[in-house]
Design a protein around this nucleic acid. Structure first.
Length: 113
DNA sequence: ATCATGACTCGTA
DNA sequence: CTACGAGCCATGA
């Protein structure tokens, strides 16, 4: 892949690799890509992925397990609703058992990179 | 080429 | 404990 910006494309792919019922953080994806400090870029990449159905951006939250980007999902509880439908309990934009549903690409896909 | 912005993260007060 | 500021890289104008 690397036909497009590259960075975005990689972020999309990692998002697609997120198993249903699990979530990850921007920093985790950024770290997997080799740019732990560029978590902003990951979030921004999601902004572009917002138009792609293949990218479950609702499974990506901040390091605190808070749905920071829910505002971009329609302004309502769309993101929370999607997570709850997959089995992820969310309370006040905060994921419950975040530690249990957290999915680390670096830990799960470490041997690939 | 530079300036400004962004769905984040970390360190210090 | 909470709050604020600075750092970071990529994109768009």
């Amino acid at each position: 892949m690397k036909d497009n910006s590259g960075f975005f494309q990689r972020v999309y792919e990692v998002c697609r690799l997120i198993p249903r019922g699990r979530v990850t953080s921007y920093g985790a994806i950024a770290k997997y890509l080799g740019a732990a400090r560029s978590a902003r870029m990951v979030g921004w990449a999601m902004n572009s992925s917002h138009s792609l159905e293949d990218v479950p951006a609702h499974r990506v939250v901040n390091r605190n397990g808070v749905l920071t980007g829910k505002h971009h999902f329609g302004g309502t509880n769309a993101m929370q609703q999607l997570l709850e439908e997959e089995g992820v309990k969310v309370k006040d934009l905060q994921i419950i058992n975040f530690d249990a549903v957290f999915w680390d690409p670096m830990k799960e896909l470490s041997r690939e990179i």
